[in-house]
Amino acid sequence: MDAMFELRRLRMLHEFALRGTLAAVAEALSYSPSTISQQLDQLEKDAAVPLFVADGRRLRLTEHGELLAAYAERALDEDERVRGELEALRPGAAPVRVALMQTAALALLPDALALLAAREPDLRLEAAAVPPEEGLFELSARRFDLVVAEQYPGHTRAHRDGLTRRILGRDPIRLAVPRGERARGLRDLADRPWVLEPEGTAARQWAVQQCRAAGFEPDVRYALPDLTAHVGLVAAGRAVAMLPDLVWAGARPPVRTITLPDAPTREVFVATRAASGTRRRVGAVVDALADALTARTSAVAGGGRGGASA
């Protein structure tokens, strides 16, 4: 079986099943589209059955192709498990690749790295700030080994086969208004300009629902993915927002924050592939992130942030 199906080609087939086009596979794996096409052609010859069929100007998997793609995923999982066992005998042999949402990169990554420097001094951690939606997809595609993401109240994220989750903690969400703003609650902000995350994100959907529940449609003038840009607009008096506590990264906010009704929180979690269970160092990174969040939220709670702060 190993002589028949090369693992590298199975990886390409797995990527095609996830991404749907040869161009997307080429970009993800840093190959040229012609190289991907040639390798998948060879895989089809090895299988001796048609794996692809034309569908307009694109290709899609045949029934045989879907069967082999499912096998490819199992083969890649088993390869990862074995590599994890080998890695335990060869410390520092492989990096742990982490995708974090922006607030986790700001507030948790420095503290987690400090913890890992003491606990796992020869561990190499590679990190990138990636939106949760993209990060969870790329985790399935094996671009990352773990992803720090969130879900808002009433907006749970879909579970993907082969991935496991661990809740790291909860992050309060509050109104953020300019320091001179006299508003005391959400209803007072019905006529203000808002800055929210782009459409399609869980944060945007949740925030809009809060405004509608308060009896108004928010005037969203700015749709920005960078939460530090939200802070800048609010601090400059140009907008109001709903922001999680982690965005402050332990610093004093340059804006006034107001606790929302029922004190909502978002759930911060880390997702890994089930096949990573043999990789002790992936677990070590998860533990460090959990400890960093616990320390951060404890510090905020100890600071006594209440209903409205000046």
Results as ranks from 00 to 15, higher is better:
D219G: 02
D287Q: 13
L61P: 04
R252D: 15
A17V: 02
M12P: 03
E181C: 15
E78G: 08
T228K: 12
P172Q: 13
A72V: 09
V98S: 02
H230R: 10
D291T: 07
E126H: 10
L67P: 03
A251E: 15
A47H: 08
V300E: 15
W194C: 05
P132C: 01
A54Y: 13
D191K: 14
P33H: 08
A292F: 03
P121A: 00
G215I: 06
D41P: 00
Q42N: 13
V255L: 03
A3C: 01
E120S: 09
R192N: 13
P132A: 07
T265C: 10
D245C: 07
L175R: 03
S298G: 12
A105G: 14
G180C: 06
H64A: 15
E78R: 15
D171V: 01
G307V: 12
A203H: 11
R90E: 14
G306K: 06
R157L: 15
A47F: 03
L116Q: 04
E138W: 11
V282D: 06
P131V: 09
A310L: 09
L109N: 11
G306E: 14
P132Q: 04
G304S: 11
Q209D: 15
Y31G: 08
R204P: 04
L260P: 10
D111Y: 00
G162R: 07
H14P: 00
P131Y: 05
Y152T: 11
G277T: 12
A236Q: 05
P91Y: 02
M242R: 03
P153K: 02
E63A: 12
V285R: 06
A107M: 02
S309F: 09
T156M: 08
R160L: 14
G180K: 09
D262P: 00
S276R: 02
P218L: 00
E66K: 04
D46M: 01
G56E: 02
A249K: 04
Y31R: 08
S37D: 08
D122Y: 10
A299Y: 08
D171P: 11
P172T: 11
A48G: 12
R83E: 11
P198Q: 12
A127H: 12
G237T: 06
L224P: 03
T21R: 06
Q205I: 09
G162W: 03
A23Y: 01
Q38H: 03
A149H: 14
V286S: 06
G277K: 11
M12A: 10
T21L: 07
